[in-house]
Write a protein that binds this DNA or RNA. Structure first.
Lengths: 306, 306
DNA sequence: GAAGGTACACAACTGTGAGTTGTGCACTAA
DNA sequence: TTAGTGCACAACTCACAGTTGTGTACCTTC
């Protein structure tokens, strides 16, 4: 591809060869090989160089695009000034929504979004420099943030109840936390020891809910399937979580009140991380993000910032 | 890249090897080579397979994108069902605007836009099947359309006068064609024998204008530069042509009236071309395109459809 | 804790093919 | 014609991708 583009840019096999520091014959072979693979003639050879055929013209923008993508791919892991690498707690949560908003405002900043296992993994990744920032809930009891990690609370995401159409509460406009006592709430895939587990442990302890956090996570499809079909089962879901689900399947999202449980997202990063885009990310979040610990909401005591 | 993605998808070197019909050792070598080139570890090897490192996670979407682009690149020249290939008379004209509009409405249709030399080249390319359709002005005198080529007039693009800030007409809200007599109008890069030349020949003959079509085309930058700096010089430009030019440079676009010269764009295609997207393109253009030969406009006699 | 199984890495070997040099041919310009 | 330019073909070399064979680490099972 690089050779093809070089020939297009120079207009000659010979000059392209010089650019690539190989012989003209090698360029000839590469182009011939490419043409053979594609079963198409890319250049018309003349005595004054090479001109693109129509197939070559059609191929050219794709070739350039390929080189661009390849360059970005390499840049994504380049130890030097690689794209800003941000860990989000899960796709389709408020955190990735925040990152989408950031990308809209700053499309020039290259981003790589990854998803790590838990806050511990995220912290060691931040400390090692493997990632630049993480959206997580802090600080889980018994795990104070290290000295060199900074954090700022950026968003409280209200939890909603998700039920199937046959659930007792399916018709409610909203439910109070007290009303949820006695109902089975299913949160599969919550791994003990993670911040999710700590969050729901506190929620259970505070309001006497029945949360079944057991069972493997077979993916959100399986979860939603079960919720839709089981009248006695409900689950919690972030307000901003986008369901990938046929709209008419009868799933109901019901706001929870008195108080509204919110999941506290903080941005974590290493104080001495020199990545220029990191400061822009703080500034963006500080400017765009709603207030937290609002009246009528509940978050675990360890997350409340004094 | 394909190997990397295969390992990610299967979670194991062995299964990836089976997918690719090579040995596990070859996969190991390929991944090791990729990691060496990138100077980064992509997988953590465990006794139950391979898991992505953080660098690997960041790299993965780029790798997938690269494969997608590569596939599209091959498809762009695939003799079978390749993307619809359309020739436009020049970028930044109404024709490419039409194609952008078509792409907005039908993003699922793969397009390749090329620019051929003149209507003759376009016609032979259409007949040979190298391209599927072409936006051109027809029918130039002495060159009737072949029997097997169909055409439909799709757009009349009004010409505007483009002047520098010091030009006599720079302050005018609009000018009549009669007012242009005696002014120097410069259209470099118009090659004799092309449909552009035929168009301007007719325009000159009809209204007694002075059009200097001589001189090589050094690109639109050079043209605009000269126009901006030369008080006695102006040029024509399509109303929908987008200038890539600092807005404050003082260039003036002045509508021309009594009558408004319009450049007649037709869509040409081979009657028996079976490409499914071609019919969609006709239908789209028929539905969205404004009327032509409107009152108060002028087009060459050979272009008027009876 | 020993035995067996799984999964990846290393070593040695082989063959393809990318690159090289050398040359030929087609076209252009003087 | 003649000289010059530009790409293709031929023969050769060697690097390396892929193969077989083997080693090692780790997990599972009894």
């Amino acid at each position: 591809m690089r050779t093809f583009v070089a020939v297009v840019d120079t207009g000659q096999f010979q000059d392209a060869a010089a650019d690539l520091s190989i012989t003209q014959q090698a360029v000839s072979k590469r182009i011939a090989g490419l043409e053979k693979n594609l079963a198409v003639r890319l250049f018309t050879r003349t005595a004054r160089g090479a001109r693109l055929t129509i197939d070559g013209q059609a191929f050219l923008p794709h070739a350039r695009e390929l080189l661009r993508v390849a360059e970005r791919a390499v840049a994504s892991v380049l130890p030097g000034s690689r794209p800003l690498r941000v860990d989000v707690i899960a796709s389709r949560t408020a955190a990735s929504g925040l990152m989408r908003g950031f990308h809209r405002v700053h499309p020039e900043i290259e981003l790589d979004v990854v998803m790590l296992f838990d806050v511990e993994t995220a912290l060691s990744a931040i400390r090692s420099g493997a990632i630049d920032a993480s959206f997580r809930a802090v600080a889980v009891p018994g795990r104070p943030l290290p000295e060199d990690i900074e954090s700022v609370r950026v968003l409280d995401e209200p939890l909603q109840l998700l039920t199937g159409p046959a659930h007792t509460l399916a018709g409610a406009r909203s439910v109070t936390v007290a009303q949820l006592a006695g109902h089975r709430i299913w949160m599969p895939g919550i791994v003990p020891g993670t911040e999710w587990a700590a969050y729901y442990d506190d929620l259970v302890a505070e309001f006497g809910l029945t949360i079944e956090a057991t069972g493997p996570n077979f993916g959100s499809d399986a979860l939603l399937d079960t919720i839709a079909d089981t009248p006695a089962l409900a689950t919690f879901m972030g307000e901003q979580t986008r369901l990938v689900w046929p709209a008419d399947h009868g799933l109901r999202r019901i706001p929870v009140t008195d108080p509204t449980p919110v999941y506290p997202h903080s941005l974590l990063w290493r104080r001495d991380n020199p990545h220029p885009a990191l400061a822009i990310l703080h500034a963006h979040l500080a400017a765009t993000v709603a207030s937290h610990d609002a009246a009528g909401t509940w978050a675990p005591g360890w997350a409340i910032q004094r």
